[in-house]
Design a protein around this nucleic acid. Structure first.
Lengths: 227, 227
DNA sequence: CGGTGTTTTGAATCGATTCAAGGAGAGTGG
DNA sequence: CCACTCTCCTTGAATCGATTCAAAACACCG
């Protein structure tokens, strides 16, 4: 299970680079981080369930967290995969009382856990901290809209192609990358069944994409762009 | 085309009920509204295109605005339908330079248009206004996540059923509603082709949903809930 | 009453899911 | 070093849900 500790200085330094903290002054940062503790989690841990009373929001230091909505019939729809530097649950800072999605840890992870009530009080005194939250929320909103638009417009191979193009390290006309997590998690992130991701990869073979385990090579970025 | 005018007092009063303004003090509200003008628009007017430099954000006073992302092949994916009281484009307040979706007016509409640069300056002096923006962004983020989750999990009849249940005026076990816009717009909002919406309605007939023009009657809310 | 634009219906097709079975790879124990 | 096992990924076949295109029905407005 999880253990809560004070944030170490190294963890504070890592958090300093996270979007939700990065634009704050030294004092504001200290004040905000004082509302947080570090929690260490195991894969499959559930941080909270859809409908639970919301007491904390989180920022990912390491590992991955999956946000999803459980359906009435037992199926689940993934909403977002949070990577190191991402935060989630800030949208409940003002008037949220319940979470409206569930959160599950997907790798050994370390999270900063912010007490919503304390941050709420802090916000009264130092409303400039709200600006940091605006920045974080704006970014989430934009990326969620992106996701919605690609769900509605792009086919599976197209979505995989854009993921590859935005996450690879280019090298001349070719490129390569290493997936930071399992393919099944990538599938959920893209709104696909694992089988559909697999088929998308084999469809992309003709566009010069070679997959072996978590390593992916792209022989021609322009060709991939055309998809 | 559009004409820009000062906000009338009646318009300011309407705007006062909008989420983005409603939590502000009298002074803050005045300061924020001083950044805005009223624009009157015709159906089909494009407020801005994906990729345009972002100078304004908007709040809808009357009418409807469709936010969408144009795809490379000419098709379009709708992201959100903004109703009176909604605002859009606030996510660009901090570091946005370009819009990343297009906005089209869908009925004769009146909008409040806020100058992003002025609001940005105002935010320096009165950071509490950021709180109002946090409130608005949080709500958008939650509803966009809802939308994403239902796209990924629910069938067309299920999505239509939940729209009906959340927008109808109940009356005992039955209910009714009048669509505020064309069916084709509702279809886009739900991420469907117009034909699919039509078919969803006929599938819901067996669940006691009667459609005639824009008027919809629900004979049994419990039955609809089961879908 | 006729004309325009919207909605419905039908048939064909597509893209993705589901279910079931067959690899491939990593780790374990003999 | 080799089987054994577990997990994850891939492949195939059937199915489903939604889109597309085309045509017919309907509604609204002059």
């Amino acid at each position: 299970m999880t253990t809560a500790l004070k944030l170490s200085n190294a963890q504070k330094a890592t958090l300093g680079k996270a979007l939700i903290v990065s634009s704050l002054s030294r004092n504001e940062r200290e004040a905000l981080l004082a509302c947080a503790t570090a929690v260490r989690c195991q894969p499959q841990d559930i941080l909270f369930h859809d409908g639970d009373t919301a007491d904390y929001f989180y920022s990912v230091l390491s590992g991955y967290v999956r946000l999803y909505r459980p359906g009435s019939d037992g199926r689940e729809a993934d909403i977002r995969i949070c990577e190191p530097g991402d935060s989630f649950g800030e949208c409940l800072i003002l008037d949220g009382c319940d979470y409206n999605y569930s959160a599950q840890v997907m790798e050994p992870a370390i999270l900063a856990r912010f007490n919503l009530e304390k941050v709420r009080e802090l916000l009264e005194d130092q409303p400039r901290i709200g600006i940091a939250i605006v920045r974080s929320l704006s970014q989430h909103l934009l990326s969620t809209m992106d996701c919605l638009a690609s769900d509605r417009m792009q086919t599976a191979p197209q979505r995989v192609a854009s993921y590859l193009l935005t996450h690879c390290t280019p090298n001349g006309g070719t490129a390569s990358l290493r997936l930071p997590f399992q393919k099944s998690l990538l599938a959920r992130k893209l709104g696909l069944a694992p089988e559909a991701l697999s088929r998308a990869f084999s469809a992309l073979r003709t566009a010069g994409v070679t997959v072996s385990g978590r390593s992916i090579a792209i022989s021609n970025m322009d060709m991939l762009q055309q998809i």
